[in-house]
């Protein structure tokens, strides 16, 4: 079964996949400092959710957030420039991988504190709707976040005040190295039930299914329904963070990883397209990313004299730290 625009959905998962692979090359080459949290394997979640949102809707992402930012429509070239710390980046080189934001396309930021963004997005959607804008939101978080009190408080506020926020749990099985069964008492869906929120589990490896589940939830929310939770069951194909490429941490059996990789969202969606269409999308994505890498590496590094720029929106200037 395919949705209204399987090509677009394929393009998004393919773009995220190749973006992450190119980004890892840039980490290895020393062009991206600090490493990244690769979204490899989870592309179907961001792509499916964002395909069911309107351009004006709002999202927040996570430390593993490249997919969310790209799927919502940020320019891959400016995103990659941000990862490379260039002034041409989305955040002018001030945010990096874990804080990439593009308010112009409704991305109120990747947020590197687990469980922190749900309340922020709830407030943003509430404020926009109070002004009369027909806006809904989707906030992504991992399975590790369901034990953060602040996220559970956000569930309560959103449900209490009927703020149309889709809480998207990307359950990839591990909070860094901690398996879900070692961390979560009860169930993830059970947490939603406690606040009277509908919860739907979905195969996060199938972009079409994620899109369909999200579209149904968004339709209910736009019709006046309150928040909902989607638990997208997915798997992280690569490391928690690229430092694992150098330091092997033994927490996932290799056969488990190998088996999970067989359910690849890029292949699942790609197989739904005629070969020539798929090849054309692949070629287009390659061209986009080649141009993005060139753009990122050509961008100037920020001037150290501007390190405190944007610290205060009010124009306040801070004292510098020198003697």
């Amino acid at each position: 079964m395919t949705g209204p625009d399987p090509v677009r959905l394929y393009r998004t998962v393919r773009l995220i996949r190749r973006f992450e692979e190119r980004a890892i090359e840039l980490v290895d080459a020393g062009e991206i400092v600090g490493g990244i949290h690769p979204y490899l394997g989870q592309e179907g979640v961001a792509a499916g959710v964002c395909a069911a949102l309107a351009a004006g809707d709002l999202v927040t992402g996570t430390h593993r957030g490249h997919g969310h930012v790209l799927a919502k429509g940020a320019d891959p070239a400016r995103m990659l420039a941000e990862l490379c710390g260039r002034v041409t980046g989305l955040n002018r080189g001030r945010g990096g991988s874990m804080h990439a934001a593009d308010f112009g396309v409704g991305v109120l930021g990747a947020n590197a504190i687990v469980g922190a963004a749900g309340a922020i997005l709830t407030g943003a959607v509430w404020a926009r709707r109070r002004r009369g804008d027909d806006v809904v939101g989707a906030t992504f978080f991992g399975d590790g976040a369901v034990n953060e009190g602040m996220l559970l408080e956000a569930f309560n506020l959103a449900a209490l005040w009927r703020v149309p926020v889709l809480f998207v749990c990307e359950n990839n099985g591990y909070a860094t190295t901690m398996p879900v069964e070692g961390a979560v008492a009860g169930t993830i869906a059970g947490r939603a039930a406690a606040f009277g929120m509908p919860a739907t589990a979905v195969d996060g490896q199938d972009p079409e299914q994620v899109r369909a589940v999200t579209a149904a939830a968004v339709a209910r929310m736009r019709a006046g329904g309150g928040p909902e939770l989607v638990e997208a069951r997915t798997y992280r194909f690569d490391a928690h963070h690229t430092f694992e490429h150098r330091v092997r941490l033994d927490y996932r059996p290799p056969e488990e990883v190998a088996a999970a990789r067989l359910r690849d969202p890029v292949l699942i969606q790609g197989d739904r397209l005629p070969a020539e269409v798929r090849a054309a999308v692949d070629a287009e994505v390659e061209a986009t990313l080649t141009a993005a890498v060139d753009f990122a590496l050509a961008g100037p590094a920020p001037d150290p004299a501007t390190a405190l720029d944007h610290l205060y929106a009010s124009g306040l200037t801070a004292r510098t730290g020198g003697g």
């Binding site: 109120l108 407030g123 943003a124 959607v125 109070r130 002004r131 602040m150 408080e153 309560n156 506020l157």
Partner: peptide, 22 residues
């Protein structure tokens, strides 16, 4: 608000990001 200081503080942050002055 409910007694949810952390959530309503960040709720205010979000509202401010969307143009309100909480």
């Amino acid at each position: 608000t409910p007694l949810s200081e952390q959530a309503f503080t960040s709720f205010a942050t979000g509202a401010a990001l969307a143009g309100a002055r909480p």
